[in-house]
């Protein structure tokens, strides 16, 4: 069975480092980048099966990254992460084509379930 490739785009490197390790322990292949521009490059150069994207980053915003990914790869699932207390940003992201959104801090089992759901689509 092909290992699922996940691209993590989040400017908090301690967060992505620990999360990447946890996913790799569960047999996922993970690439991490800490900004939107590198994230867009990674999508082109090393295509993932799913993108996990933080909404609030310096520079290119999560929503802008989402729009650009979906414009070139409409079938690539993008799971949004948001640290805000309200769900408005997540809902806005889904209106722009995100597969789903999750609030930080994450529950690893819920994340795995979302990744598997995305893989099944």
């Amino acid at each position: 069975m092909t290992t699922m490739k996940v691209l993590l785009i989040d400017d908090e490197q301690e967060f992505t480092g620990a999360l990447a390790e946890r996913l790799e322990l569960r047999d996922y292949t993970v690439q991490t980048v800490d900004n939107g521009e590198d994230g867009l490059s990674a999508v082109e150069n090393n295509p993932p099966h799913i993108v996990v994207l933080d909404l609030k980053m310096p520079g290119l915003s999560g929503i802008e990254v989402l729009k650009r990914i979906k414009s070139r790869h409409p079938d690539l699932p993008v799971l949004l992460l948001t640290g805000y207390g309200s769900t408005e940003d997540g809902i806005k992201g889904m209106q722009h084509g995100a597969f789903d959104y999750m609030m930080k801090p994450l529950n690893i089992d819920e994340l795995i379930a979302k990744l598997q759901e995305a893989a099944g689509k």
């Binding site: 908090e12 301690e14 967060f15 620990a18 640290g83 207390g85 930080k104 801090p105 994450l106």
Partner: peptide, 10 residues
């Protein structure tokens, strides 16, 4: 929230 997310993953 970001701090908590780091602690949570660690």
């Amino acid at each position: 929230r970001n701090i908590l997310a780091i602690i949570n993953e660690s």
